[in-house]
C-alpha cells in the first residue's frame, strides 16, 4: 500500500490536466519527476481519473523506455550510446561505471539508491562525444578515468547535502 501522500501529490498533478486520455503521458512524466519512478499502484488511480482502463494505462506506461516502475537512484547517469559516442568509445565509460558501482545491464540501481546507470540513444551532444548525462546535466568528452572521478565528486556532493 502506498502512503496517502502519494495520492495527494498525484491529485495535485491530475488537477493540472484535462481528464482525458491525451493527458496520460504528461501526467506520467510528472509523477516520474516527483518520485524518480512511476509507482505501479498509481496507474489504476490515474486511469480512473482520466477515464481509461487500467490495462490501457499500463500498456502505455510500459511502452515508453523513459518510464520506470522501479525506483531510481538519486543520481541518474545516462550514458550516451549514440553513433557518434559509440565510434568514440562510449562503451568503456559505461563498463567502468558499472564496474565501480557493481551494476550491470540488469541491475541498474545501487542498493544505497544513490546511482542509476542506464544507456540512452542520443543526448544531442554528439560533437563532444562520448557524453553522458547526470540528471539534467551533460558531461562531455568522457573517459573511463573521468567517469571514476565524476562518481567521486557526486559522492562528495551527496555527503554534503
Amino acid at each position: 500500500m502506498l502512503d496517502q501522500s502519494f495520492y495527494t501529490k498525484t491529485d495535485e498533478i491530475l488537477s493540472k490536466y484535462p481528464a482525458q486520455e491525451r493527458s496520460l503521458i504528461p501526467i506520467i512524466h510528472e509523477v516520474q519527476e516527483a518520485y524518480n519512478y512511476v509507482p505501479l499502484e498509481l496507474l489504476p488511480y490515474i486511469a480512473k481519473h482520466i477515464g481509461i482502463t487500467e490495462t490501457k494505462a499500463y500498456s502505455v506506461a510500459s511502452f515508453y523506455e523513459r518510464f520506470s516502475f522501479e525506483p531510481k537512484g538519486k543520481y541518474i547517469i545516462r550514458v550516451c550510446d549514440g553513433t557518434a559516442c559509440h565510434v568514440r568509445n562510449s562503451l568503456p565509460v559505461l563498463e567502468r561505471l558499472r564496474e565501480e558501482l557493481g551494476l550491470s545491464s540488469q541491475k541498474k540501481t545501487t542498493d544505497d539508491m544513490l546511482f542509476t546507470v542506464e544507456t540512452v540513444s542520443c543526448l544531442g551532444a554528439c560533437s563532444l562525444a562520448p557524453a553522458l548525462m547526470v540528471n539534467d546535466h551533460v558531461h562531455p568528452a568522457m573517459t573511463p578515468d573521468k567517469a571514476t572521478e565524476m562518481l567521486k565528486t557526486l559522492r562528495e556532493e551527496d555527503a554534503k547535502s
Binding site: Q20, I25, I52, Y64, E65, V120, S121
Partner: peptide, 25 residues
C-alpha cells in the same frame, strides 16, 4: 508542447500523433 518518452518509433508520423493522443507510439 508534448514531451516524448524515449521511443525512437515516435519519429514516425502516425506513431507520433498516437503518442500525443496518449496512446502507445
Amino acid at each position: 508542447i508534448n514531451r516524448g518518452a524515449g521511443a525512437f518509433v515516435c519519429g514516425e508520423g502516425s506513431a507520433l500523433t498516437a503518442s500525443i493522443e496518449g496512446k502507445r507510439g
